[in-house]
């Protein structure tokens, strides 16, 4: 049912095998397989309740999700026993669908703390303030973020678009290996969508990978995926190239369900 994303599967950045997971004893993922290689963009689409956000949270290590079976490997290492911060340290990044507010903590202070904690985990010194400032300037320009925005409290009073742009700004600062964008397009107007997508495209390299979780084709006009997966009832039921997303946009999901039955 699913395609191997590339021939050399030994070098998978992310490899998920037969993943079964539940929350509050409710089974959500029911034997999910996914392979993502460095340099690739994967889109995961599917109807509400298919398990898209669950998958994102499980890869990031959210506590209330229980992995019942299967493995999650990142660069050959099983990460399913790692704490969320340990996963972050080895390059997992989740752009949240609903980023939380942290009153009194500025965007700058937050990202500075995050970068230095990641460096500490790698045995590195704190980033010198000069370098930090330079990086903040570069990345905020990339995402067309007003510098005044950076001194505001994290997500407090942010518009939907500001929140998402701030997520991508953090991604740009942290330079993850695997970035998961959970419905980053929701709440974005067309201009913000273009800026965010443009940022993601510029951050893409042969060494990192992106998983885009979305309901709509819209975002995929800007971030063109190498693979499109359809998630339905806890499993990936169809995989194709970018044209699959267009087909889903035109035909909805029902034909896939029918295809499954037949």
């Amino acid at each position: 049912m699913y395609l191997k994303s590339q021939a050399n599967s030994i070098n998978n950045m992310l490899k998920i095998e037969n993943l079964k997971a539940s929350v509050d004893n409710k089974s959500i993922l029911k034997g999910l397989n996914l392979e993502v290689n460095a340099g690739e963009v994967h889109a995961i689409m599917g109807p509400n309740g298919a398990g898209k956000s669950t998958l994102a949270n499980i890869i990031a290590g959210k506590e209330e999700y229980e992995v019942n079976q299967g493995t999650i490997e990142l660069n050959g290492e099983d990460i399913s026993e790692l704490a969320p911060e340990e996963r972050a340290h080895i390059g997992v990044f989740l752009s949240f669908q609903y980023p939380v507010e942290i009153p009194g903590v500025s965007v700058t202070n937050f990202i500075k703390t995050a970068i230095n904690e990641n460096r500490k985990a790698k045995g590195l010194e704190e980033m010198p303030a000069k370098n930090m400032l330079k990086m903040i300037r570069e990345k905020s320009e990339l995402l067309e973020i007003d510098r005044k925005f950076l001194s505001r409290s994290l997500n407090e009073g942010f518009s939907g678009g500001e929140k998402k742009r701030n997520e991508i700004f953090q991604m740009a600062m942290l330079e993850p290996k695997l970035a998961i964008l959970d419905e980053t397009d929701s709440g974005l107007d067309i201009d913000a969508l273009r800026i965010v997508a443009n940022g993601v495209n510029k951050l893409k390299s042969k060494d990192n990978a992106v998983i885009v979780i979305t309901h709509y084709q819209r975002l995929l006009d800007y971030i063109v995926p190498d693979f499109v997966h359809v998630l339905h009832d806890g499993k990936i039921v169809k995989t194709g190239d970018a044209s699959l997303a267009l087909e889903l946009e035109a035909r909805g999901y029902d034909w896939i369900k029918e295809e499954m039955i037949s």
């Binding site: 990031a60 911060e85 972050a88 942290i102 995050a114 985990a121």
Partner: peptide, 10 residues
């Protein structure tokens, strides 16, 4: 969890 996800321990 948000902080943890960014690499900041509890």
């Amino acid at each position: 969890f948000y902080c943890n996800q960014r690499g900041i321990d509890t």
